[in-house]
């Protein structure tokens, strides 16, 4: 009897705490949505900031973030996927594999501000790219790299080994097997991984602080050596700087809303895609 009461209490506590976690998310989201949604309209999304950034829109920040995400993915996606394929398909369980995995984990654990510092030292100063989209994208790309590698590896691991064996039995080479059999099956999960890393990259502030972000630049970038405004940094600026902190608050809420909406959209898209593609694979 006592046993059951204990269990009931313990399980209720667990349940309660879990719901608290869910509640936290809803409080944060609710706060951003309630305060931000009224600010967001077509003009907000497509206009330049005006009047000391208390009016107008955030278009350059949206475009800037899009450029950075695109740039970082052009860098991180091929390298990440190729390296995932190499680690999972080519390397036997040996020291090198362990070492590469450890390095990937190490890179994943590096704080984002250290990426920023490193990006500034290597890309901005040493390679003389200056504060630019190029420098920012490469920094963000390095940050996304371990995420892409890991998710690629996981995607490849989940491919049934029998498929590989069957393919070999038909006399194909390893490369052909990977290209024709393994990758098509793993593709949905790799794609989800890519989308998730886009979500991660689009919200990062610390790595772009010293590599690309600018306070105010009401025009669109024309080359990869331009600086840009970016959504996360813009939110930081609106929340802490600006002469009229009260007047720029609505803009801050709006920016937070757009940023969160983008990130959530990406996450939801990824999980929907995963479900959809998994179903398709199962049906086949």
């Amino acid at each position: 009897m006592n046993k059951n009461i204990n269990q009931k209490i313990a399980f209720s506590v667990f349940k309660l705490l879990s719901f608290a976690v869910v509640a936290i998310l809803f409080v944060i989201l609710g706060f951003i949505v309630v305060r931000g949604i009224g600010v967001v309209n077509w003009e907000f999304l497509t206009a330049m900031p005006e009047d000391g950034m208390t009016k107008g829109g955030i278009m350059p920040a949206i475009v800037g973030t899009a450029c950075l995400v695109l740039g970082s993915m052009i860098f991180a996606f091929p390298i990440g996927v190729l390296s995932g394929i190499y680690i999972n398909e080519y390397l036997p369980e040996n020291g090198l594999k362990k070492f590469l995995r450890m390095m990937t984990n190490n890179l994943a654990g590096v704080p984002s501000i250290v990426f920023g510092l490193f990006g500034m030292a290597l890309f901005v100063n040493y390679l003389k790219f200056g504060d630019s989209i190029l420098a920012g994208s490469l920094t963000l790309g390095l940050l996304a790299l371990p995420v892409v590698i890991r998710l690629t590896e996981e995607a490849l691991k989940s491919v049934d080994d029998n498929l590989r064996l069957a393919s070999y039995a038909m006399g194909t080479t390893k490369l052909q097997t990977i290209r024709r059999v393994v990758l098509p099956v793993a593709f949905p999960n790799i794609l989800t991984g890519l989308i998730l890393s886009v979500g991660r990259v689009s919200g990062e502030t610390a790595p772009i602080l010293f590599t690309v972000a600018t306070y105010f630049l009401p025009r669109l970038p024309q080359s990869i050596f331009d600086q840009v405004m970016a959504l996360p940094y813009h939110l930081y600026v609106l929340a802490t700087s600006g002469t009229q902190i009260e007047a720029s608050k609505p803009m801050a809420y709006g920016t937070a809303f757009v940023l969160v909406a983008i990130v959530l959209f990406i996450n939801v898209l990824a999980s929907l895609l995963r479900r959809f593609l998994q179903k398709k694979v199962k049906m086949n």
Binding site: G52, M53, L217, R219, Q227, G242
Partner: peptide, 22 residues
Amino acid sequence: PLTQKEAENYMKATPGASLMVT
């Protein structure tokens, strides 16, 4: 903030001008 505002107005008044404020 001052330069930002001045730049904003200046760019409005002078077509083709482009200022970057950091």
